[in-house]
Amino acid sequence: MNTINLGDFRLDFQPTYIKLKINEGFHFDAKAFEELHSIKEEIYGNLKVGILVCNDAEADYSIDPLVLVHYKEILENHLQWVIVVSNIVSDFKNFEYLQRLTKVPCKFVRNYKSLHPESCIAS
């Protein structure tokens, strides 16, 4: 697995998806999204990939929901699916925004045990 640690967030690259871990105290905003998108295009080109968002149970971070509005077209053109793995209430709220504002298939799970080979990670 190839990993890039950008300080504010870490990306782990798999053949068909990217694992995104937002680090403690970071605000994921337009600048972070553009950086993520640029790296995604360098590695995968125009291939649609999945995004697996996961964080530590104690992590405190935020995501700017306007990213989902301003970059809606990019999200829909470049993402095959999004899975959020978390027990944090604010993560579920961010997931609900994503699910409502895009056509990208989304799933929210509380732990990795909820993911299995038949899940959308395998597709």
Rank of each mutant, 00 (worst) to 15 (best):
M1Y: 00
N2T: 03
N2D: 07
T3H: 02
T3K: 12
D8M: 13
D8V: 01
D12S: 12
P15D: 13
Y17P: 00
Y17R: 04
I18V: 14
I18K: 09
I18Y: 02
I22D: 03
N23V: 00
H27M: 05
A30D: 14
K31V: 13
A32S: 13
A32C: 13
L36Y: 15
L36I: 12
H37F: 15
S38R: 12
I39C: 01
K40Q: 12
K40C: 03
K40H: 10
E42W: 02
E42G: 10
Y44Q: 06
G45Y: 01
V49P: 00
G50E: 01
C54F: 10
N55G: 10
D56L: 15
D56T: 05
A57Y: 10
A57C: 09
Y61I: 04
S62I: 06
D64G: 00
D64H: 03
P65N: 09
V69Q: 09
V69S: 14
H70L: 06
H70M: 06
Y71A: 06
K72R: 15
L75K: 08
N77F: 00
N77E: 12
H78E: 03
L79M: 11
W81C: 05
V82R: 11
I83T: 11
S86L: 03
N87E: 15
V89R: 03
S90K: 10
F92M: 08
F92W: 08
N94C: 12
F95R: 01
E96K: 06
Y97E: 13
L98T: 14
L98H: 02
L98A: 10
Q99T: 10
Q99L: 01
K103I: 05
K103S: 09
P105W: 13
P105V: 13
P105Q: 06
C106M: 12
K107E: 05
R110M: 14
Y112D: 07
S114L: 03
S114G: 06
L115S: 04
H116R: 15
H116S: 14
C120N: 13
I121P: 12
